[in-house]
């Protein structure tokens, strides 16, 4: 086993040695650990204050009947029981799963496809396309929603105009007001606003694949598909895992588009769990029920993320 020795100057000028990252001087280890924690402390403070504490409060209040203007009453699991008897919640859950099942693979696959093409371009063209695809991300959600709402407008919308002019439709369609199309429209908008970050990440990841491995594979007679599947795909697996997890979480949390475009309608066709949480907490001031739904959503996301880690081998490069 090759031995790698490094010298490090300790505080008192003492020269210490370690083999393969194993420190022999426990005092130095303690010192460095303490320093690490001190560096983490500011972030940790805010993490505890703004993430852990609200998280615990959310969990605790989900066991209470907690509504504005009413006394706080412990109800045990009643909110959770109510939730699974609430047809609107179940519809929202179903819609959310449809969003995730359709949008996440579509976003990931499309991003990978675009990136595979774009990363081979010259630096200028690569930057240009990165900007184009990232534009919907940096554009405010409200602005994006307003533009899409105009395009989907039943009476003056661009889509109806084009489809009508080309004879594809003979009667205007209320795209966001028709249960047959509304969720599909939301998925389309979500798709366009979600692909920016994955494309940028994939372009970076593909650019970091060791070219010597690709050259070697090609010399050995590998075709394009084999090069991608055997060389590039394993190398970008950590990026893929990150994209899958982040896109899944973002899709599960789809709220703003619903709030701005459909309010969950028509007939709850576009209700999502996050929108329903908002509705219960902020419109009806039923915080306990909203918190209970938040807990369930968090559990679902945690489980799905764990599955994604498992399936993708924890994102490790082989």
């Amino acid at each position: 086993m090759a031995s790698k020795t490094k010298a490090a100057a300790a505080k008192g000028g003492e020269v210490l040695t370690y083999n393969q990252g194993t420190f022999r001087n426990s005092a130095l280890v303690r010192q460095q650990t303490l320093a690490a924690y001190l560096f983490m402390l500011p972030a940790l403070f805010f993490f505890v204050l703004f993430v852990v504490v609200p998280m615990v409060m959310c969990l605790v209040t989900s066991f209470f009947d907690y509504r504005m203007g009413k006394p706080l009453t412990f109800v045990g699991l009643a909110q959770y029981v109510k939730m699974f008897q609430d047809p609107t919640f179940l519809k929202a859950l179903q819609n959310t799963f449809i969003l995730v099942i359709v949008a996440v693979p579509a976003v990931t696959a499309f991003s990978l496809w675009v990136s595979s093409v774009v990363y081979q371009f010259s630096a200028f063209k690569r930057s240009f396309f990165r900007c184009i695809f990232y534009l919907p991300v940096v554009t405010g959600t409200v602005a994006v929603a307003v533009v899409w709402k105009w395009m989907f407008n039943k009476y003056t919308g661009l889509i109806n105009y084009v489809l009508g002019a080309t004879g594809i439709i003979h009667e205007n369609i209320s795209w966001l007001g028709d249960a047959r199309f509304a969720l599909g429209c939301i998925i389309l908008i979500l798709f366009t606003t979600s692909i920016g970050q994955p494309i940028v990440l994939y372009i970076a990841a593909l650019g970091n694949v060791d070219p010597s491995l690709i050259d070697a594979a090609e010399v050995d007679g590998a075709n394009n598909f084999q090069v991608f599947w055997q060389i590039k795909w394993p190398q970008i697996m950590p990026t893929t895992l990150y994209i899958l997890v982040i896109t899944t979480i973002n899709t599960f949390q789809c709220y703003a588009l619903i709030q701005l475009l459909t309010s969950g309608g028509p007939n709850h066709a576009t209700d999502t769990i996050m929108y329903y949480i908002y509705y219960q907490a902020f419109k009806l001031n039923d915080y306990g029920y909203g918190d209970a739904m938040g807990v369930v959503l968090a559990i679902i996301i945690a489980v799905l993320s764990a599955i994604q880690f498992k399936v993708t081998g924890s994102g490790a490069t082989d």
């Binding site: 703004f50 609200p54 998280m55 209040t61 997890v245 949390q253 938040g294 945690a302 993320s305 994102g315």
Partner: peptide, 26 residues
């Protein structure tokens, strides 16, 4: 990895509780 997944989910949970973070009771 599992810890990371739990952390991400936790941040969602925190978002849900954000509206009630200042007070637990009336």
């Amino acid at each position: 990895s599992l810890l990371l997944a739990a952390g991400m989910a936790a941040s969602l949970l925190a978002g849900c509780g954000g509206g009630t973070s200042s007070t637990a009771t009336d």
